[in-house]
Amino acid sequence: MFEALSFGDAGWGDELLYGLAVTIRLALTALPVGLAIGFVVAGLSMARSPLLRMLGVGYTTLMRGLPEILTLFVVYNGVGLLLGRIALWYDPAAAPPAFSPFVAGVVALSLVFGAFAAEVLRGAFAALDRGQVEAGQSVGMTRGMIFRRIQVPQVWRFALPGLGNLWINLLKDTSLVSVIALDDLMRMTKVAVGVTKQPFTFYLAACLIYWALCVLSELVLARLEARANRGVRRV
């Protein structure tokens, strides 16, 4: 049973490892994009203008309410169709352009991550002591300076636990891209199952790899949190 998981030509160990690399690359690419979306949307939901606020709140409500798999299909099929139509419009003879599943995965996962991150960041900004902002104003800091020097360094501290959970969700959600034929860990497992006819062994192996990733992330996050809170007085 275990030789099927060995490395080299006989086993599927190296194929699974290749899939794991795709999974990690996908998650690490979606993370910064999603965080950027999160900051923008959090900014919108805290804006003075009611129109912008509605836009931000609407986005988070929409993205948090839809199944991730539906978002992925909408992005993959929708953008695919759109690109095809644009290509036809330019040059009716052209073959429809291929929309890479990796890009579709990154876009869909970061759209979802961004919506949840926006809520975490909004909560973190709200958790900041208002007195510190007023203190900044009273010593003559501009809004930008207050944002950069007082708010951002502390938002990190308040947002880290929430963002850590989102990172773990992101890692797990990457498994969805196997459905749109991206060779991530889940899909490589499926390929291995197709050949070896040992579904339980291989899906259990995949589960254990995902589990290890999550436990490892939790350990790193705990250290990051300890580091972010090192200047805080404990009561």
């Binding site: 797990k172 959600d173 990457t174 498994s175 196997s178 499926k190 339980f200 995949a206 589960c207 436990v215």
Partner: peptide
């Protein structure tokens, strides 16, 4: 609890649906 929360639901679903075939 750690396992159920640390693995994708899709993987759990495949483990049960396809994995049961092995037995």
């Amino acid at each position: 609890i750690s396992f159920a929360r640390g693995t994708p639901i899709l993987a759990q679903l495949f483990l049960i649906f396809y994995g049961s075939g092995q037995f």
